[in-house]
């Protein structure tokens, strides 16, 4: 499947930005996001190809807007919902509860 992820040869993305002495993770949540995806894989809830395909199904504008480990998080959430492990509603309810904003109805 081609799509926004299929970037080989695309023009216009500009220079390559590099960081000296880059840390493995820039935020604690990045390591957690990777670990949660890998435990989902290890637990047999989804396989690596399905997971990669989930990330490739993130809508193109969003794919380009979010960071790498955010794609991992969204891919994991998509997989867990599609496999019946954790519904989007249940996740949203927990998110609302944790953010103290039970009125938020935006499930994006």
């Amino acid at each position: 499947m081609n799509g926004i992820h299929d970037m080989g040869g695309v023009h216009g993305y500009g220079p390559i930005i590099r960081e000296e002495d880059e840390p493995v993770f820039h935020h604690e949540w990045e390591g957690k996001a990777l670990a949660l995806a890998r435990t989902g894989l290890a637990g047999g809830h989804f396989n690596l190809d399905e997971f990669r395909h989930a990330m490739e199904r993130i809508p193109p504008v969003e794919y380009l807007s979010i960071s790498y480990y955010e794609r991992w998080l969204e891919g994991t959430l998509m997989m867990l919902a599609e496999k019946g492990v954790l519904s989007g509603e249940e996740f949203q309810a927990r998110l609302d509860e944790m953010s103290g904003d039970a009125l938020s109805g935006d499930g994006a």
């Binding site: 935020h27 949540w29 949660l36 809830h45 960071s67 998080l73 492990v85 998110l95 944790m98």
Partner: peptide, 21 residues
């Protein structure tokens, strides 16, 4: 990053509760 961090914490808490992680 704060929003993402919260989303990750929410997912982590649910998976821990369900005994999946």
């Amino acid at each position: 990053d704060n929003d993402v961090a919260l989303r990750v914490r929410a997912l982590e808490s649910l998976l821990l509760e369900k005994g999946l992680v």
